[in-house]
Amino acid sequence: MDLTRLRLLVELERWGTMAAVAEVAGMSTSAVSKHFAVLEKEAGARLLAPEGRRVRLTPAGQRLARHAVDILARVEAAQAELAGEGEPVGRVSLVTFVSVATPIVLPAVRRLRADHPGIDVRLIEHEPDDALRVLQSGAADLGLVYDYSLVPRRFPGTLTLRPLGTEPLLLSQPSTGAATSRTMTRSRLRGLADASWIANSRGSDDDELVSRLCAGAGFAPLIRHRIDNLEMVEELVAAGMGVGVLPKLAAATRRGVVHSPLGELGGSRRIALAANTGAWAWRPILLLGRYLWQEAQRVLDDAAPEPPAPPGPADFG
């Protein structure tokens, strides 16, 4: 199959319209359409289906697009290896969650842009469930994801993970009564059995985390509020309307709020980089991953080993 047509297929899955693909590829819409007609013959399967005035990928088209991401990454890696020189150039879409944006992502991207201006980083905000779907679809190249040590996540086998480190979990509670910033104990946690708990609106791993945490203290939590915005969670706590679990990077110093480390009761949040297995061979992705790792070392615990260095001229001499 022609690599140009595979690239067009990947772009169609990413952008969704023939016009957008034509603009990105610098072709006319009719030329793009002809390429897809030839690609369907090469694949021996129908890859596109009309949907009103647009087109969508059929299941076969979606599968081929996912294979194409891996194929193109491997070809680009081979070309870079054979060339062995030159500045890395390319666009990397990074999907990330909000609490690592300021301490890790933005410093890493700023440094990367200064050192390698040919790498264009695009940011997408998603929590892990959606981030993993975006990565598998090919709409993002690299992702920052997390899980909890109390609630291990099963990650898709098509993705390769590179751990960055961990961060402790804190109990955010109003600074009244018996609230203290000392590490939480089971007996003190048991005193919050009648409290209103705050969880997110997705009802995913965070619910399970709160349930397991409270179960260890012998009670089931009353989840009364479902809030995704972390600043609003803290506002509710400061107003005396509830308590909630926050990772250390998301906990701000705020009047009326006390953050008590949960220690072994709550375990930790584990943060990792994720990408489709073949994508790691591409220098822009490997470089961005390396810069993210370097920034993560400043703010995370249990730092993971340094990732491999991207290939350069000296590696191919």
Results as ranks from 00 to 15, higher is better:
3 L>A: 09
11 E>G: 04
13 E>L: 11
19 A>T: 11
30 S>H: 13
33 S>D: 04
40 E>V: 01
42 E>Y: 02
42 E>I: 02
47 L>S: 08
49 A>L: 05
66 R>N: 03
74 R>V: 11
76 E>K: 10
84 G>Q: 03
85 E>H: 12
86 G>W: 03
101 A>K: 13
102 T>A: 13
103 P>I: 03
113 R>A: 14
119 I>S: 08
125 E>S: 07
125 E>W: 02
126 H>Q: 11
128 P>H: 07
133 R>W: 08
135 L>P: 10
152 P>A: 10
153 R>W: 03
154 R>Y: 03
155 F>Y: 15
166 T>A: 13
170 L>K: 00
178 A>C: 01
183 T>E: 15
188 R>K: 15
190 R>T: 05
192 L>V: 05
198 I>E: 03
199 A>G: 13
205 D>Y: 07
210 V>F: 00
214 C>S: 14
215 A>L: 12
224 R>W: 04
227 I>D: 06
233 V>A: 14
234 E>M: 15
237 V>R: 09
239 A>N: 13
242 G>F: 06
244 G>P: 03
247 P>H: 10
252 A>Q: 15
252 A>T: 14
255 R>G: 09
260 S>F: 02
266 G>P: 09
273 L>K: 11
280 W>V: 04
289 G>A: 04
312 G>Q: 06
314 A>S: 10
